[in-house]
């Protein structure tokens, strides 16, 4: 009986050590669910503001644009001071904090350091496409091409996930592909950005989180 188990156990040990040393696998499914819920809440508040300002996404922003039509550029400071931007920032902060919290709890359980070489590698690979995308989108806002912001967020975030999937749970790749796909479709449905945004950052995150929880954490 012992002979029967020994080689299988060895292979399991090897596999586990290879994964633990190269990938950050403490990413919790709950982190995905929490981020998704934050995104949906954020989108709900944003849609409330947009409706109050009378009109769909595109027209609302054009209010800002009209104010600054003199130089043709949308003032970044005005945009940053707007309620929409505040909501976006709060949503991001809440999502980041909550997903960090769940992953931190999980890494305590699995005994992997939250700030080890694997998580550093993961973070660097997420940040690359995200920072590039962020700067690109800021410039788009400045130029007043607001309709492409939501698709841009989805596409760059998707690329960041695909890039990062080599350094964490491989399934992150599919979440990335789905976000890229949504973003690209959204490019031809300008004005519905908020819905696509809510579907990508909200619904997809929640579905992904539940699947990951079911697969790896369910006892």
């Amino acid at each position: 009986m012992d002979d029967y188990q020994q080689p299988i156990d060895s292979i399991k040990d090897i596999k586990q050590m290879m994964e633990r040393s190269s990938r950050f696998i403490s990413l919790s499914g709950w982190s995905g669910v929490a981020a998704g819920v934050c995104a949906l809440a954020g989108a709900w508040f944003a849609s409330d503001i947009i409706t109050k300002n009378g009109g769909p996404y595109g027209e609302h922003i054009s209010v800002y644009r009209a104010d600054h039509a003199d130089n043709g550029l949308l003032d970044l400071q005005v945009f940053m001071g707007s309620k929409l931007f505040l909501i976006a920032a709060l949503t991001f902060a809440a999502a980041f904090f909550l997903s960090f919290f769940f992953t931190w709890t999980r890494s305590k359980k699995t005994g992997t350091p939250v700030w080890g070489s694997s998580s550093q590698r993961l973070l660097i690979n997420v940040l690359g496409p995200m920072v590039a995308g962020g700067l690109f989108l800021l410039r788009m806002i400045q130029l007043g091409i607001v309709g492409l912001i939501a698709p841009g967020c989805l596409i760059f975030y998707g690329l960041a996930l695909v890039n990062a999937s080599k350094y964490t749970l491989g399934e992150v790749r599919y979440l990335g592909y789905a976000n890229i796909l949504l973003g690209i479709i959204n490019c031809w449905f300008i004005g519905y950005g908020l819905y696509f945004w809510a579907a990508g950052f909200g619904v997809l995150h929640i579905i992904y989180g539940i699947i990951m929880w079911y697969k790896y954490e369910r006892q």
Partner: peptide
């Protein structure tokens, strides 16, 4: 075996 596994993929 653990040391070797970790070194093989890093």
């Amino acid at each position: 075996l653990g040391i070797m596994s970790a070194l093989m993929v890093n």
